[in-house]
Amino acid sequence: MAKLTLPCDVETIRALKVGDFLELEGRIVTGRDSAHHWLLEHHQADVAPLLAGSVIYHCGPVVKRHEDGHYSFVAAGPTTSAREEPYQADVIGRYGLRGVIGKGGMGAKTLKGLQEHGAVYLHAVGGTAQVLAQAVVEVEQVFMLKEFGVPEALWVIRVSGFPVVVTMDSHGGSLHAEVEKASRQKLEQMLGLAS
């Protein structure tokens, strides 16, 4: 399995294709609904350098706070990405993200954003919270914990051997669009609905 070290440059991302398996190494940041709104409200200068060239992980983890004040991830699989569809392309463009980790795939607006900016959608296996928490080697810091709560905060984490598959690439390829279209045709045929 190929390694992708983050942050990375745009050429590395352009070389990736739908179906590629990757193991991620390096620093990434979690963010979901509240984080995407917050990142678009205005330029968040503290987080921006951490996002540039890296990826945002759609994840609301279970987190343990240790007695000395440091945090560790107890469970950390991906959440459904579709909810970020209205915002994702803008967040990618504004912060120079090279990709997104999530589950379930995203739509046409994000796919166009990936093409424009040179970024990829990386699918982690939904529900595999233990496998993925093991690949989180360190929680470096957290933003907006008090305001957003544990699942919605922006957790800055270091990962090693974090398994993902490219399901949307920077050339307009989307496994999700293909599977959706083919399965709709099969269903229409099955139910005699084909127009």
Binding site: G19, F21, A76, T79, V125, G127, T128, A129, Q130, V165
Partner: peptide
Amino acid sequence: LARKALDSILHNIELAASNWQPICQD
């Protein structure tokens, strides 16, 4: 991809069971 996803799922189930930690973070 389907087989690899299910392998990961089965591995995850074992890890969660032996450590008594949540199968899924949600």
